[in-house]
Simulated assay, not measured.
Amino acid sequence: MIKMGITGGIGTGKSVVSDIFHLHGIPLYNADREAKKLNDSSPYIRAQLTLQIGEDLYTEDKLDRKKLASIIFHDSRKLAIVNSIIHPELARHFTEWCRQREWSHPMVIIDAALLIEAGFYQFVDKVVMVQAPKELRIARVMQRDRSTRDEVEARMNSQLPEEEKIKYADYLICNDNRHSLIHQVAEVIKKVAGNSL
């Protein structure tokens, strides 16, 4: 089984590209969505987060994401602690998810914004990075999230710079509204499948 990781900075359209791969019949693991589910359902994550960060992080059976975000946003030490609790559990979950599909699918993809930062690139065979011009990314996120330009730029600046992410990429997909995403995805699938034969 070939595992492909799809990543890209905010506003690049990484999730749209992942959905196109999925339309080709390739199983898709959305790391952000699965992490949210695990944060609510995993007794281990709940126990560790309440122990390390605070007792009042959970209301009923759900993690209070806003409260956690407000705590870790300005505290890099606490952010590192939270990541050290969640990321290994997510990695285990992804590995098991892959194992359940290894006989039925020759290829799977993981959509992960923090593929590089969280070290998830170690669990995939190929890294696909989605790129887009900075101004287009800013415009997309401002429209999508109703954010100000300053807010979007602050979020962009908190992410690993594109030139660093590129070092890990096996394939680049350009989402600039001029190049066909469908064609680029089909080309990547053809190359990856061809190289594995």
Results as ranks from 00 to 15, higher is better:
residue 1 M to G: 00
residue 3 K to M: 02
residue 4 M to N: 03
residue 4 M to Q: 01
residue 4 M to G: 08
residue 5 G to T: 07
residue 5 G to F: 11
residue 6 I to C: 04
residue 8 G to F: 08
residue 8 G to A: 14
residue 11 G to L: 08
residue 16 V to G: 09
residue 20 I to Q: 02
residue 27 P to I: 07
residue 29 Y to K: 08
residue 30 N to M: 11
residue 33 R to P: 00
residue 33 R to S: 10
residue 38 L to E: 15
residue 41 S to L: 13
residue 45 I to Q: 05
residue 45 I to L: 03
residue 46 R to A: 03
residue 48 Q to E: 15
residue 50 T to C: 12
residue 52 Q to A: 14
residue 54 G to L: 04
residue 59 T to I: 13
residue 59 T to K: 00
residue 61 D to H: 05
residue 64 D to N: 14
residue 66 K to R: 09
residue 72 I to M: 07
residue 74 H to A: 03
residue 76 S to H: 03
residue 77 R to Y: 10
residue 77 R to Q: 13
residue 77 R to A: 06
residue 77 R to C: 03
residue 81 I to H: 07
residue 85 I to D: 01
residue 86 I to T: 15
residue 86 I to F: 02
residue 86 I to K: 03
residue 92 R to H: 15
residue 94 F to N: 08
residue 94 F to P: 12
residue 97 W to L: 08
residue 97 W to N: 06
residue 99 R to C: 03
residue 100 Q to S: 11
residue 101 R to H: 04
residue 102 E to Y: 00
residue 104 S to R: 10
residue 105 H to D: 13
residue 109 I to R: 05
residue 109 I to W: 09
residue 110 I to L: 02
residue 111 D to T: 03
residue 114 L to T: 08
residue 128 V to M: 02
residue 130 V to K: 00
residue 135 E to N: 07
residue 137 R to T: 11
residue 142 M to C: 02
residue 143 Q to S: 10
residue 145 D to C: 05
residue 146 R to Y: 11
residue 147 S to N: 07
residue 150 D to C: 11
residue 153 E to I: 15
residue 154 A to M: 12
residue 158 S to H: 11
residue 159 Q to T: 05
residue 161 P to D: 12
residue 161 P to V: 05
residue 163 E to A: 08
residue 164 E to R: 01
residue 170 D to C: 00
residue 176 D to T: 09
residue 180 S to I: 03
residue 180 S to Y: 01
residue 183 H to P: 02
residue 185 V to M: 01
residue 188 V to I: 13
residue 193 A to F: 09
residue 193 A to K: 08
residue 196 S to P: 05
residue 196 S to F: 11
residue 197 L to P: 13
